[in-house]
Each structure stands twice: as C-alpha cells, then as structure tokens.
Design a protein around this nucleic acid. Structure first.
Length: 484
DNA sequence: TGAAATGTTGGGGCG
DNA sequence: ACGCCCCAACATTTC
C-alpha cells in the first residue's frame, strides 16, 4: 500500500516559519507535516535554559503555536528524552521523514549525531539543515585547514565565501495529518516563573516571529544608520536588540543580512554604509562564536589558553560576587548594567563589557561565575556568544583582549553615558546627583551628596574595591600567568 | 572593543 | 630680547 507522505519537523532554536529550512523541506515534500517541540533540558549538558531564557521560550512557543494554527497546522509539544519521543511519534504517525535545523552546542551535537544515526534505520528521510548561521561553522578553515582563532582573519575568510542565500519564504499552509498525535500543554512544561518577576521583560520584549520582524524593521529604519557611534551609548536604543530573537531562531541571520544589504542599496550613502558594515561585523562575531564553540567544545568550562587554567582567582569572594549580581558595587555604571539585566533580562553590550571586566579584573572572580549568572538572567543567553564574550574579557580566549586591558568604570561611564541618564534610569537613588559626580559619587563634596539625598554606604554603597588597588592586583595576577 | 605612565612640544607668563 | 619655568596638549610606551 502507498501510505501518504508524513514529515516531522523537529523545532528547536528555530521558532519561526519564514526562512526555516527544515520546515520548508517538509512543506516541499508534500503530504502531512507534523511540527514538534520536545522539552528535554537534561540533554543540554550543564547548560539547560536559565530562568529568563525559559520565560522567553514559553512566550515564543506560544507564538509559534498560534502561527502554525494560522497555517492550518499546530505545534505538538512533548517533554522527555528526545530520541525516545521522536521514535514514538514516528510510530504513532507513520512518518517517513524527519527534518531539523542544526544546533552547535557540544552536548547537542553529540546527541543529534546519535539521533540521526539511529533514526536513519527507522525512517527513509532524515536530514538536518543550517538554519542559524550565515556560514556553516565547520566549513571555514584557514590555509592549514585549522579553525581560525583571530576574528579579523575569520571574517575575511567568510567574506570570501558565497554570499548567504536569500531567505526562504514561509509556507502558505501546512497539510495536517489525518490524526494529530497527543500534545502536552505548554503550561505543563512549567517554563514560566512561579513568582511573576517578568514584568520588566514583558514591557521591553515581544518574543516570537512577529516581534522579531518588528524589531528588525525598527532597527533597519532607525538606529542602524548611526550604529557605528550609537551602539556604544547605553542610554539610547542604538543597538539592534535582536539577540534573543536570534538565539531562539525567531529570525535568521540570513534574513537580517539581506534586510541590511537592501537598506544599504536604498540609502547609498557612505555614512550608512559604514554603520551597516559595522553591524554586519557584529553578526560576524556571532558566527565566530559558533565557529569556536564547534572547534573548541570544551571552552564553555575551560579557558582556551592553557596558561589560564591555574589563574589565581580571589578566594572567599562570595560576598563580592553577590554585590556584583545585585548591582551594589558602588560603581554606578556597573550597578546600572547589573540592574538593567535583572529587570529586563538584557544588558547593553558596551555595559556587558564593563561589568564583565569589573567582575574578572577588579574583583578577580572567575569568569565562569559571571558566565553562569548571565546564563541564568539573560533572555538572549547563548552558549557560543556567552562563552566567547567572557573568555574575551578574561583574556583567556581566542582573539582575547590582552589581560592588561582593564576598563576604568568611571572613565567608561563618563565616555559612554556622558549625561548620566543611563545611570539615573537604573539607579534611582542617584537620580538627583549632578552629572559631574554621577559616575564617581565618592568624589563629590559632602554638600553635593547631601543635596542629592545620597548617603554613601547607606542609600548607595561606597565602592566595594578601590579602582587603583584593584587594577594593580589584577596586573600582579597577570604576572603569575606570564611566568608560566 | 583601555588606561596610566612617561615623554615631547610649544605657547605664554615672568623676571 | 632672552632664558627660564610651568603646564596643557599631544604622542609614545608600558602595563
């Protein structure tokens, strides 16, 4: 008998309908399409979704489910072992094909390899696609055939590749199977917090494919034109704010790439050109991060540079770590960033560099502590980007900042939050501080502090470490690394 | 996608 | 007119 074709599309971090290669392949085959999401956090290694990430995932799955209904389909939700779940779905539905888009986290690569091998003996068509990178991470190699470890060289090699393909359009409709397999409810996954702390996130974000599209439009028609300068100013919306959408695959880098290129063509001015290139380079850093994660799979837990394995991190730093996490270090730009993170699940990239540098260099706390905190609190937490970013700041990764580059939080604040508005927004207790002192309130005359209603050590903390002392201590620690 | 220390230069005040 | 000093402004080196 000739049973009708049935394809399973296994959704993962690709929660969109447009430019979704696995979905497009299933739609193109003809026959029924069964979209599935499987919640299996224990398969993520040490990197199951953090709390903020779970909140986003819930909203995004909800959105995807509705959009699939719009195509005459639906999203089947399951929890449990991925392989076992897929096998039982194949059995229940008689599916003869299964498609998904690749992920690049080491534990997931390993899992998916096994799944692919196993399912090949069960169904006729098993195929994975590249849906989340502009360039397949393993295809970029230097002349010796080794992975790149320097961004500029990596990106130059990427730019010599064929331009990323044009985005695929969304299927118009998806044929349903005769009978749908069972689905759990989204609520049953318990992704949302029990105590509702997500108010700030709901205000700032709209998870899902439409939210992503809207944000892209907002960016390409706005901040993108001044990105080269605007991206460093945290008190305005000068960055794309696409990172969580990208992480969950609500939008693909290819869609972004071509949207920017199109705007470049329309604008045709040198200034826009430069800003657009600067932004595309940031997509390049994302590519580089994935490239490194694939080729150096141990880097989420181990420094890429051997000599940092025995780095003399400060002992007994629990109190200091907590001050940093809660935005109570006494350095306004650092605290503002940490509070923005806590409130919105996101932090401006310039400020990420400052707070990360502060943790690793001023407090001499292991970068992995910072990475873990970001992992739990960021809505855009992404193993490749998080790992690259922290190792870059700590100086122990690829193309890393030399260790002796130590941000001065006061100077960085004055340079990039010139008017102090970013600090005032996130640290209300400093609202009345004059701009002159806002990035270093301890330098203000007592009269100014009184007038602003600030009592250092009471209403706002005094600096938990002295900058000069901390800088010298960090440089001394570097000496130990260099000796080896 | 640093900051601090150190070096150099040149204008201006002053005797 | 001249030498001297001070110091801002900029450049270079060092961490």
């Amino acid at each position: 008998m000739s049973s009708p074709r049935t394809s399973i599309v296994w959704f993962r971090n690709d929660l969109r309908l447009a430019d979704q290669p696995a979905l497009a392949a299933a739609a193109k085959r003809g026959g029924a399409v069964i979209p599935v999401f499987i919640w299996a956090p224990e398969e993520e290694g040490a990197w199951a979704n953090g709390a903020a990430s779970r909140w986003w995932l819930h909203q995004s799955l909800s959105d995807l489910g509705e959009r699939l209904i719009g195509l005459g389909s639906k999203l089947i939700i399951r929890s449990g072992q991925s392989l076992a779940t897929l096998r039982s779905l194949i059995e229940q539905t008689g599916a003869d094909a299964i498609f998904w888009n690749r992920r690049y986290e080491p534990a997931i690569v390993k899992r998916d390899t096994t799944i692919k091998e196993t399912l090949r003996s069960v169904v006729a068509h098993v195929e994975s696609f590249n849906g989340s990178c502009l360039f397949e991470p393993v295809h970029i190699k230097n002349q010796q055939g080794d992975p790149y470890q320097v961004f500029t060289a990596f990106w130059r090699a990427c730019m010599k590749q064929q331009e990323p393909a044009r985005p695929l359009s969304s299927p118009r409709q998806l044929p349903a199977p005769k009978q749908w397999p069972d689905s759990e409810s989204l609520e049953a996954l318990r992704l949302e917090p029990v105590v509702d702390w997500a108010t700030g996130m709901r205000v700032m974000w709209r998870p899902g494919e439409m939210g992503a599209k809207r944000q892209l439009k907002r960016f390409t028609s706005g901040a993108c034109a001044e990105y080269a300068e605007g991206r460093d100013l945290p008190d305005r919306e000068g960055t794309s704010r696409l990172s969580p959408h990208l992480h969950f695959g609500e939008i693909s880098p290819r869609q972004i790439w071509h949207a920017i290129r199109k705007r470049q063509g329309d604008a045709g001015e040198a200034a826009f050109e430069e800003s657009a290139e600067t932004y595309l380079r940031e997509l390049g850093w994302r590519e580089f991060a994935h490239h490194l994660l694939v080729h150096f799979p141990q880097t989420p837990s181990d420094p890429l540079r051997e000599q940092y394995r025995t780095f003399p991190w400060a002992r007994q730093s629990g109190e200091m770590l907590r001050s940093w996490q809660r935005g109570q270090t006494g350095y306004p730009i650092v605290d503002a960033g940490m509070r923005e993170l806590w409130a919105t699940g996101w932090m401006h990239n310039r400020v990420r560099m400052i707070v990360a540098s502060f943790l690793v260099k001023h407090l001499l706390i292991d970068w992995r502590e910072g990475a873990a905190w970001f992992w739990d609190t960021l809505v855009d937490a992404d193993l490749a980007n998080n790992t690259l970013g922290w190792q870059w700041v700590a100086g122990c990764g690829a193309d890393a900042a030399p260790y002796f580059r130590i941000f001065n939080p006061v100077l960085q604040g004055r340079k990039f939050d010139r008017g102090g508005d970013y600090v005032r927004k996130w640290i209300p207790e400093l609202k009345a501080m004059p701009t002159k002192w806002i990035h270093a309130p301890w330098e203000a005359p007592v009269a100014e502090l009184t007038k602003a209603g600030v009592t250092l050590g009471a209403s706002y903390p005094a600096p938990i470490v002295d900058h000069d002392w901390a800088r010298k201590r960090a440089l001394a620690a570097l000496e130990q690394v260099k000796q080896q």
